[in-house]
């Protein structure tokens, strides 16, 4: 995997839920493959399969205990919502007929 990586920028932009204008898309079409071919250097490193399946860095999860009492932060959090209806965040209709 050397040289320039072929990238479908439009598909990536869709996956990342972005909307990007034509000018910026042109720049990205040059920059993204350049950055990817730069990071592709790691393919030169020989690695054994063993470390592949047992990485040192693992996610550490907190126990899901000591829940807050309901309602304690409702007002503080809802105050930040762009659209609100009572104690709910208002969103456009999700399921359409």
């Amino acid at each position: 995997m050397t040289g320039s990586q072929k990238v479908d920028i439009k598909a990536l932009v869709d996956l990342a839920r972005l909307e990007i204008g034509e000018e910026d898309m042109k720049k990205l079409a040059e920059q993204i493959p350049a950055i990817l071919s730069f990071v592709t250097r790691i393919q030169e490193v020989a690695t054994s399969g063993e470390t592949d399946t047992n990485p040192a860095h693992k996610n550490v999860m907190r126990d899901d205990t000591d829940a807050y009492k309901p309602g304690v932060f409702t007002e503080a959090l809802l105050k930040a919502a762009p659209r609100r209806e009572g104690d709910y965040v208002r969103v456009p209709q999700v399921i359409k007929k």
Binding site: L12, L15, A16, L28, V39
Partner: peptide, 8 residues
């Protein structure tokens, strides 16, 4: 945006 796209 660049980094989000690379990450994606």
């Amino acid at each position: 945006r660049r980094r989000i796209l690379i990450g994606t």
